[in-house]
């Protein structure tokens, strides 16, 4: 019998809640995701867009946006480059199949282990993030589907707004900075309280 595989980036000793008690607590959820960055070769951007549309039924996002399709998200990161987020069950397979279908039209780099995805949500998500980030995250300025590479809590981070009735944000951060970012989010959220949900272990 083997031990269950730990999928969370964070130590099991981390608290699952903190800060003020109440109904306005923010929710911090670690997500198990497959991440693959694709960067179009010179002059191949429209080929890349049509290949990804065919292979994943996913439309590549315009600058400053993230698009959803078939349970995956395409996040614009820089001219000619997108980060594809898919469920964790597609780890490995996502980059292999993209590399095959793109066939040299783009550089394909698996970032599943290089980055971590944290979702941050709650009634006060915008004002709490404003303590860590200089972007204008108001409903009118940063709508669902808006995305930005920026600095959150002094750390380089991809920040995008999710489609949700409650203000919700996806944060994609370099793995070695993930625990720092979690500390920063929890400290910033402590005036309202927070709940943290790490990724559950895989079955043994």
């Amino acid at each position: 019998m083997s031990a269950p595989e730990r999928l969370s980036r964070f130590p099991a000793s981390r608290s699952l809640s903190g800060g003020r008690k109440g109904s306005d607590a923010l929710s911090i959820v670690e997500q198990h995701a497959a991440l693959t960055q694709i960067t179009a070769r010179k002059g191949r951007q429209s080929d890349v867009a049509s290949i990804v549309a065919r292979a994943l039924a996913l439309e590549l996002a315009d600058p400053g946006r993230a698009t959803n399709g078939s349970g995956r998200t395409a996040i614009w990161v820089q001219p000619g480059s997108w980060l594809i987020r898919a469920p964790g069950s597609e780890r490995g397979e996502l980059s292999t199949s993209l590399r095959q279908s793109l066939d040299g039209a783009a550089a394909v780099v698996d970032q599943s282990h290089g980055r971590n995805v944290i979702e941050f949500s709650g009634k006060h998500a915008q004002s709490v993030l404003a303590r860590l980030c200089r972007l204008d995250l108001h409903d009118r300025a940063f709508t669902p589907g808006a995305s930005a590479s920026t600095i959150v809590g002094h750390v380089s981070c991809q920040l995008y707004r999710l489609e949700s009735p409650v203000p919700s944000f996806g944060l994609i951060v370099g793995s070695t900075f993930a625990e720092w970012l979690l500390d920063e989010l929890q400290a910033a959220a402590s005036s309202h309280g927070w709940n943290f949900q790490p990724v559950r272990n895989a079955a043994a």
Binding site: P63, Q78, P79, R134, L135, S149
Partner: peptide, 16 residues
């Protein structure tokens, strides 16, 4: 805060 207009991202804070 000093804003710099990036031709790709729009106006962003100078510390980026």
């Amino acid at each position: 805060m000093h804003l710099i207009p990036c031709p790709y991202c729009g106006e962003r804070p100078q510390d980026e």
